[in-house]
């Protein structure tokens, strides 16, 4: 639909950032897996591991600053996302929720950390995989808890409505549980990260381009940079919020699968 970027040469004038800017070439020639997003995923795993190992190594009754930071993240996930949402069986799911939250948060924050500045989740494969994990886990939990037939019956047949209405309602319920839930879960995260990164690119690259123009344009460029910096803080908020929402919805879906009746 929007193909303006495909024909614009990179020779002169301002090239607006587009989806092609997310296609980073591999840094080892010929090895298509050696790209920046993959490297960032490994980096995030290493960073999270180091942080939480250091934070929990010398656990003391009077916590150090590092231990306090680690424990407040953990207790946030356990209490606000686990216990409040899932209920009395929450302890089984805290490891998954905690992994999900820290992984998404760190990978999102890569979008505004200087010198890295690429949110990993703006490549759609990563949100797809995370949403697939959540999808399988909450269906597995529901089937284990209630048995396959009873679980499907509970999804498909809402009690207390006239029989002909099931023709309308049942496809909606099935589509919601098996199609829309994983789709919206992954697309929400992806679209937020993609759009945020694009927004930052527009203002920073635009400001840089204005700086090379005539004197009048040079005077405008500080405003573009200022908006870019303000949007960076806005992005920080969005990135934390998206990590939270992804984890919260995972917890809500698990809670819904565990609940005996609606």
């Amino acid at each position: 639909m929007l193909s303006y970027a495909a024909e614009v040469g990179k020779d002169e004038g301002f090239n607006p950032p587009d989806a092609g800017d997310f296609n980073l070439p591999p840094f080892i020639e010929g090895n298509e897996f050696a790209t920046k997003p993959i490297l960032l995923v490994f980096l995030s795993v290493i960073l999270i591991s180091i942080f939480f190992i250091l934070a929990s190594r010398k656990a003391a009754l009077v916590p150090s600053k590092l231990q306090f930071a680690g424990e407040s993240v953990y207790s946030f996930v356990r209490n606000d996302l686990g216990r409040e949402v899932i209920g009395h069986e929450f302890m089984r799911f805290v490891p998954y929720l905690f992994t999900l939250f820290t992984f998404i948060l760190v990978n999102n924050l890569f979008g505004i950390i200087p010198l890295i500045q690429f949110p990993t989740m703006s490549r759609i494969s990563f949100p797809y995989v995370l949403a697939a994990f959540t999808f399988f886990i909450f269906h597995y939990v529901g089937i284990r808890k209630q048995g396959f037939l009873k679980y499907m019956k509970e999804i498909m047949f809402l009690p207390g409505i006239p029989k002909p209405a099931y023709i309308l309602i049942t496809p909606l319920e099935l589509a919601t549980y098996f199609l829309v839930r994983p789709m919206t879960l992954s697309l929400r995260l992806f679209a937020n990260m993609f759009a945020g990164h694009l927004l930052l690119l527009v203002f920073i690259l635009g400001g840089e381009h204005l700086l090379q123009g005539v004197i009048g344009l040079k005077l405008i460029s500080p405003f573009a940079f200022a908006i870019g910096i303000a949007l960076t803080f806005f992005e920080f908020m969005v990135q934390c919020l998206q990590a939270y929402i992804f984890t919260l919805l995972t917890a809500l879906y698990i809670a819904g699968a565990l609940a005996d009746e609606h």
């Binding site: 209920g87 929450f90 809500l252």
Partner: peptide, 15 residues
């Protein structure tokens, strides 16, 4: 551990 999820259903209902 509590037996019931304590959070009201607003954020669930929205999505």
């Amino acid at each position: 551990s509590s037996n019931e999820p304590k959070r009201p259903s607003e954020d669930n209902a929205f999505w």
